[in-house]
Amino acid sequence: MSELRALYQEIILEHNKKPRNFRKLEHATRTLEGYNPLCGDHYTLYLKIENDTVVDISFEGAGCAISKASASVMTTMLKGKSKDEAQGLFETFHKLVTGELKDISFETLGKLAAFAGVSEFPARVKCASLAWHTMRNALDAQSEPVSTE
């Protein structure tokens, strides 16, 4: 049970139940789909970029608790961030869920710390990282749907 609790932390369950920024963004400058067909996790990410800064971000769609909470937490962290900062967060998150950041303090990670348990569940890394990969590709102005499977 303890490992399960480490994966399904309160913050993840709470974001899954009440996802933040869960709506379509009018006047989005970038819209990109993230879709893992084997899982069925399917989201649309909306970004409003002005002067290389994420001025607004939202998402819609459906999927497991890990993918949905990850998308929700991500949107709360990215608003107001520059593209470079967003890229930096992507890299931190990626290292975190693949177990490369084991020794870093939770203070440094902020809300991302909730996803530390994912690295113990290799099959779920693709769920946690779907929204983040979608965000990165959207920032790169790519238009192909993103998959992490």
Binding site: M1, E3, L4, Y8, C64, I66, R124
Partner: peptide
């Protein structure tokens, strides 16, 4: 209700129970 099959599959797996989740 409210729990996606993949989350169910992960939790059951930790209990030693192998089921398929997905389409």
């Amino acid at each position: 209700d409210d729990v996606h099959p993949h989350d169910i599959g992960t939790i059951l797996d930790r209990e030693g129970i192998a089921v398929r989740t997905g389409h």
